[in-house]
Computed example of a mutant assay.
Amino acid sequence: MMTNLFSVFDPTTKIFNLNLNWSSTILGLLILPYTFWFLPTRMNILWTLMIMILHKEFKILMEPKGHPGSSVFFVTLFSLIMFNNFLGLFPYIFTSTSHMILTLTLALPLWLSFMLYGWINHTQHMFAHLIPQGTPPILMPFMVCIETISNMIRPGTLAIRLAANMIAGHLLLTLLGSTGPSMNSALVCTLMIGQILLLILEVAVAIIQSYVFAILSTLYSSEVN
Rank of each mutant, 00 (worst) to 15 (best):
F83W: 09
Y92G: 07
I51W: 08
N21P: 00
N165A: 10
I207S: 06
H99T: 02
L108Q: 09
L172W: 02
S221I: 07
P91S: 02
A214H: 01
W22K: 05
M43N: 15
L108K: 13
E202W: 01
V8L: 11
T103W: 04
M52E: 14
P40I: 05
P109Q: 11
L32G: 10
T157G: 04
V8I: 13
V212I: 11
F142A: 13
P64F: 10
L102F: 07
T25N: 00
T179E: 08
M183A: 11
I207E: 05
I51V: 14
N84W: 03
W111F: 04
F90Y: 04
L30Q: 13
L32C: 13
F213S: 02
G177H: 04
P68L: 09
T97G: 00
A186Q: 15
M115Y: 06
H125S: 05
L5N: 07
L201C: 04
L104N: 06
L29Y: 14
A164S: 08
F36E: 13
I196A: 03
G177Q: 02
I215V: 13
T25F: 05
L172M: 09
I53A: 07
N85H: 02
E63C: 14
N184M: 08
L110S: 03
I138K: 02
K56D: 12
T174L: 14
T12V: 08
L102K: 00
I120G: 01
T174W: 12
L173E: 10
S222Q: 06
W37K: 14
L172F: 06
Y211C: 03
L176F: 01
G156D: 04
A128H: 05
E57I: 11
S23E: 10
V8G: 13
Y211T: 05
I149A: 12
I120R: 13
S178L: 06
L112V: 09
I138Q: 09
N21Q: 05
L176W: 01
